[in-house]
């Protein structure tokens, strides 16, 4: 048996004992408590999703109807009556989110690569300002951002909103990409250079595939931020056809005669929240790796 195999076997042994000591629980109380808590946390999501498919009468019934007698799409259709159609709001949100993801990813990949692999004057100042942004909460900048957007002719503009969202993604995104590029071994880049790549052309051909997990993480965080952002959209979008989903929801809530159509509201919430929940379930491990990067390990 080689020493390597021995080491591997030892490592496995340690792992196994660790699992037995701490990493495994068959305690039924723990399992029951965990499942009950998980059910409690999931309940609001499930309740709202079911509510979205109730008939408008049942969705607005008092006391509430626990289980719908039929499932309909009427609530989604009623949301159309509150301004522009639901589809317009969904498309607005999709547009802002897509632009934010693209701008954030491209800008952060380029800047992260430069910070990790190039030496240039102003490098530390640039990184310092980027990280320093975390100290300034962006709600505090909204007053003047509104004025700035008027100067640039970007009020009521989904593109303008995407530029703002991308900017405030920069600290996390650049930090994440810089770390990803730094963890690529130097030898790989040198080998690429020997093969005739320049430092720059090695990026798309050789290095980018290696940092793909980091790129997905950055894109995922940008997606969730842009899809869910509320305050800037509330302040910067004033005309109904350009509303994003969260703003459209608040508008639907303040419906005609100040009555709330709870069925339509729950339908809107469902359309807004489910893409995020589903995307998270699909890309969980990227979210976690982003968190680990964020905790600075």
């Amino acid at each position: 048996m080689t020493t390597q195999a021995l080491h591997a076997r030892q490592a496995r042994g340690i792992r196994r004992s660790r699992i037995q000591a701490q990493d495994h629980s068959r305690n039924p109380i723990r399992i029951i408590v965990a499942i009950v808590l998980a059910a409690l946390f999931a309940f609001p999501i499930v309740w709202t999703t079911i509510g979205a498919f109730k008939s408008p009468t049942e969705a607005n019934a008092s006391p509430p109807v626990w289980w719908p007698s039929t499932l309909t799409l009427e609530n989604f259709a009623k949301l159309d009556g509150t301004g522009s159609s639901l589809l317009v709001y969904v498309l607005n949100s999709v547009a802002v989110t897509t632009m934010t993801v693209l701008i954030t990813t491209v800008a952060a990949v380029l800047a992260g690569y430069a910070l990790a692999r190039y030496r240039f004057r102003g490098q530390n100042a640039f990184f310092g300002v980027t990280i320093g942004m975390l100290l300034v909460p962006y709600p505090a900048l909204l007053v003047s951002l509104f004025t700035v957007m008027v100067w640039f002719g970007l009020t009521n503009s989904l593109f303008g909103l995407a530029l703002i969202y991308s900017t405030f993604q920069m600290p996390f995104a650049i930090y994440m990409m810089r770390n990803s590029f730094e963890s690529v071994p130097d030898e790989l880049i040198e080998a690429a250079e020997l093969d005739g790549c320049t430092k720059f052309s090695a990026l798309p051909r050789v290095i980018l595939p290696l940092v793909a997990p980091g790129v997905v993480t950055v894109a995922l965080f940008a997606f969730l931020a842009a899809w869910n952002e509320f305050l800037a959209a509330l302040v910067l979008l004033n005309d109904n056809p350009s509303f994003t989903l969260p703003i459209a929801l608040v508008n639907a809530q303040n419906g005609p005669l100040n009555t709330i159509d709870w069925g339509a509201l729950q339908a809107g919430i469902t359309v807004t929240m489910l893409p995020c929940v589903i995307l998270f379930i699909l890309l969980q491990r990227y979210y976690v790796s982003g968190l680990v990067a964020g905790t600075g390990k």
């Binding site: 808590l37 998980a38 059910a39 946390f41 999931a42 609001p44 999501i45 709202t48 969730l224 899809w227 869910n228 952002e229 509320f230 989903l245 969260p246 929801l249 608040v250 809530q253 509201l265 729950q266 809107g268 919430i269 807004t272 929240m273 995020c276 929940v277 995307l279 998270f280 379930i281 969980q284």
Partner: peptide, 18 residues
Amino acid sequence: ALLFAPVTIGFAPAGLLW
């Protein structure tokens, strides 16, 4: 995953949901 799911929802839709 279930304990984490609410994190992915925005504060505005989550507020309206509650």
